[in-house]
Computed example of a mutant assay.
Amino acid sequence: MTTALAAGTRTGRSLVADAEFGTLAAFCADEYGLERCVADKVIDQALALVHVMGTTRSGASMAPSQHVDPGWHTLILHTDWYATWCQEQFGYFLHHQPNSKTRTRGLMTAVVEKIRASGFEIDERLWGTAADCNPPACCGDGPCC
């Protein structure tokens, strides 16, 4: 379930030009075997995550969910673009520091709250924090998976 949010929220997608978003989402879909509509959501959430990590300098304490991780990998695999985007957005290159072993429902909830507090829309299904996350239709990281 996607959480409805107040007016004035923004999307990760809004941080890049439409052509760039299309290129990233198409790559993500192809590289990770996702339907394009899913890849669009993954890239949107990855852009929001990386933007919050970069602008708050809290990358070491945040991690993407299992579902959002392919989006961040897509960004960093486009190295020239990613380096330029980081410089424009934050003034420095945000390095990828893998910490997937620390993914817990609690961490994902904290990450989602940081992203939401920065004004971004959240797709709870991609973070494993949706209220209706129940087996066997699990929606992401967390104890139900």
Rank of each mutant, 00 (worst) to 15 (best):
residue 2 T to A: 15
residue 2 T to Y: 09
residue 3 T to M: 02
residue 6 A to N: 14
residue 6 A to Q: 10
residue 7 A to V: 10
residue 8 G to I: 03
residue 10 R to F: 03
residue 12 G to L: 14
residue 12 G to H: 02
residue 12 G to T: 11
residue 12 G to M: 11
residue 13 R to M: 14
residue 13 R to K: 15
residue 14 S to D: 11
residue 14 S to I: 08
residue 14 S to E: 12
residue 15 L to A: 09
residue 15 L to C: 00
residue 15 L to R: 05
residue 16 V to T: 03
residue 16 V to K: 11
residue 16 V to F: 02
residue 16 V to H: 05
residue 17 A to N: 06
residue 17 A to D: 13
residue 17 A to H: 14
residue 18 D to M: 10
residue 18 D to A: 15
residue 19 A to F: 11
residue 19 A to V: 15
residue 19 A to L: 11
residue 20 E to H: 09
residue 20 E to N: 08
residue 21 F to N: 13
residue 21 F to P: 11
residue 22 G to W: 10
residue 22 G to C: 06
residue 23 T to I: 09
residue 24 L to H: 01
residue 25 A to P: 07
residue 29 A to R: 12
residue 30 D to C: 12
residue 30 D to W: 05
residue 30 D to N: 12
residue 31 E to P: 09
residue 32 Y to M: 10
residue 32 Y to F: 15
residue 33 G to W: 08
residue 34 L to D: 09
residue 36 R to D: 04
residue 37 C to T: 07
residue 38 V to W: 07
residue 39 A to L: 07
residue 39 A to W: 05
residue 39 A to T: 09
residue 43 I to V: 15
residue 43 I to L: 15
residue 45 Q to H: 09
residue 46 A to M: 09
residue 48 A to F: 06
residue 50 V to G: 07
residue 50 V to H: 14
residue 52 V to R: 09
residue 53 M to S: 08
residue 53 M to D: 00
residue 53 M to I: 06
residue 54 G to W: 04
residue 55 T to Y: 01
residue 57 R to F: 01
residue 57 R to I: 04
residue 59 G to T: 11
residue 62 M to F: 08
residue 62 M to I: 11
residue 64 P to T: 03
residue 65 S to A: 13
residue 65 S to C: 06
residue 66 Q to Y: 12
residue 69 D to K: 14
residue 69 D to G: 07
residue 69 D to W: 04
residue 73 H to F: 05
residue 73 H to Q: 10
residue 74 T to P: 10
residue 74 T to S: 14
residue 74 T to C: 15
residue 78 H to S: 02
residue 79 T to K: 10
residue 79 T to I: 09
residue 80 D to V: 09
residue 81 W to G: 00
residue 81 W to F: 13
residue 82 Y to N: 04
residue 82 Y to E: 03
residue 84 T to A: 13
residue 85 W to D: 02
residue 87 Q to K: 07
residue 88 E to I: 04
residue 89 Q to Y: 03
residue 90 F to D: 06
residue 91 G to T: 04
residue 92 Y to C: 02
residue 93 F to E: 01
residue 94 L to F: 12
residue 96 H to T: 10
residue 98 P to L: 14
residue 99 N to L: 04
residue 99 N to C: 14
residue 104 T to W: 08
residue 105 R to I: 08
residue 108 M to I: 05
residue 108 M to T: 07
residue 109 T to H: 04
residue 110 A to Y: 11
residue 114 K to C: 03
residue 114 K to T: 07
residue 114 K to V: 01
residue 116 R to C: 01
residue 117 A to G: 05
residue 119 G to E: 04
residue 120 F to H: 05
residue 120 F to M: 00
residue 121 E to W: 00
residue 127 W to A: 05
residue 132 D to R: 04
residue 132 D to W: 02
residue 132 D to T: 07
residue 134 N to W: 08
residue 135 P to H: 02
residue 136 P to C: 04
residue 136 P to F: 07
residue 138 C to Q: 14
residue 138 C to K: 09
residue 140 G to H: 01
residue 140 G to E: 03
residue 141 D to F: 02
residue 141 D to M: 05
residue 143 P to D: 13
residue 144 C to K: 14
residue 144 C to N: 09
residue 145 C to W: 02
